[in-house]
């Protein structure tokens, strides 16, 4: 019996040496150490032995089992180590090969710019207000302090839809709409949207473009608030630019009127083609809401005051990204749009 035990143990050890895979190792374990394995069977047959042989055989069998279990574990470790080595040997890639293209989608550069503008003004309490693109002459001009034949109308080249109806030339008619809707509440809104001008299309001008108008109306709105608001916007949008300057200007619907310039971000104020050698770039037209416009919106100018400003969307984006032709925006060449 003991001989038989030795024989089984010997056979198990030699066959373990040739086991090369995890699968075969498991088969080996089942054959010798499993529930019905050879060694297990032998241990089970201890009872068949004469009483006095039992202790010696039991010890030997347990010892053999422990020995095989240890051998099994060693072999298992060895095989795993070999597996790992094999995987590492065969698994190298050329890490300089390009990754799998995702082909993500892109928001239009105008949308991205609008969102930046929304976010900056939202922090200052301005909410988005949308107004129609086809407007009455009265809202686009008349109620903005430009009665028919007013010379200031020359400042806008207008598409006419029919008598008294135009494609809005600016977002300013939305001021009247917002005031009439919200009166007598104070107001803080921005009015984004498409505007239209009867202008030949060139690298610098488009017949369709976006504007964002801002309007604040309250009991105590001051010109210095306007300058503060524009300064804050410029600082955040253009990212810590150099100097900002406010200069007098003229718009029929604001008084006093100003324009805000930033030091040209391309030449840093030295003068270049983009800033027409002035060193400055206009970023917004603005002013205190004209008393006539406040009245037309339903607000008594002796009690209320307000400021309004208007900024382009394409021009700021052009400055920020070095885009040199406004036609790229609505030409929709994906090779352009996918850059942003």
């Amino acid at each position: 019996m003991l001989d038989e035990l030795r024989q089984v143990e010997e056979e198990a050890r030699s066959s373990l040496r040739v086991v090369q895979s995890g699968e075969n190792l498991e088969i080996w374990r089942r054959r010798y150490l499993g529930k019905n394995g050879a060694l297990t069977e032998m241990l089970r047959s201890v009872g068949d032995l004469p009483k006095d042989e039992r202790p010696a055989f039991g010890r030997a069998a347990n010892e053999a089992k422990r020995g095989l279990e240890e051998a099994f574990q060693r072999r298992a470790d060895e095989l795993e180590r070999q597996d790992t080595e094999r995987e590492l040997r065969g698994g190298s890639v050329d890490v300089t090969l390009p990754g799998r293209p995702i082909g993500p989608g892109h928001l239009h550069i105008t949308t991205q710019t609008l969102r930046q503008i929304y976010a900056i003004f939202a922090d200052m309490g301005f909410q988005v207000y949308e107004a129609p693109e086809v407007e009455t002459d009265e809202l686009n001009f008349g109620l903005l302090n430009m009665p028919p034949d007013h010379p200031a109308r020359d400042m806008w080249d207008t598409f006419w839809v029919e008598e008294g109806v135009v494609m809005r030339t600016h977002t300013s008619p939305g001021q009247i709409r917002a005031m009439r809707e919200y009166c007598p509440e104070p107001i803080r809104v921005i009015l984004p949207g498409k505007c239209y001008r009867y202008e030949q299309v060139s690298a610098r001008s488009e017949h369709q473009f976006y504007q964002v108008e801002g309007l604040a109306v309250g009991h105590d709105i001051r010109m210095t608030d306007l300058i503060g608001t524009l300064t804050e916007f410029a600082r955040r949008f253009y990212g810590g630019v150099g100097r900002l300057r406010m200069r007098g200007s003229y718009f029929p619907f604001t008084e006093p009127s100003i324009e805000a310039d930033i030091e040209c971000i391309l030449c840093e104020g030295l003068g270049c083609r983009v800033c027409k050698n002035s060193g400055w770039l206009e970023i917004a037209g603005a002013g205190m809401v004209h008393p006539v416009v406040l009245e037309n919106g339903g607000y008594d100018p002796t009690e209320w005051s307000g400021f309004a400003f208007g900024t382009g969307v394409e021009r700021p984006a052009m400055l920020k990204h070095g885009i040199d032709d406004i036609r790229l925006f609505y030409g929709n060449d994906l090779r352009f749009l996918r850059q942003f």
Binding site: P186, M223, P256, S257
Partner: peptide
């Protein structure tokens, strides 16, 4: 308002301080 503008522009907007709105925040 026309006179306010004359005073403002000759006084010089570059001399204006910047302020934050102190008016109440609208709804």
């Amino acid at each position: 308002a026309d006179l306010v503008e004359e005073v403002g522009r000759i006084w010089g907007y570059d001399r204006f301080p910047t302020t934050r709105m102190r008016d109440e925040l609208p709804p």
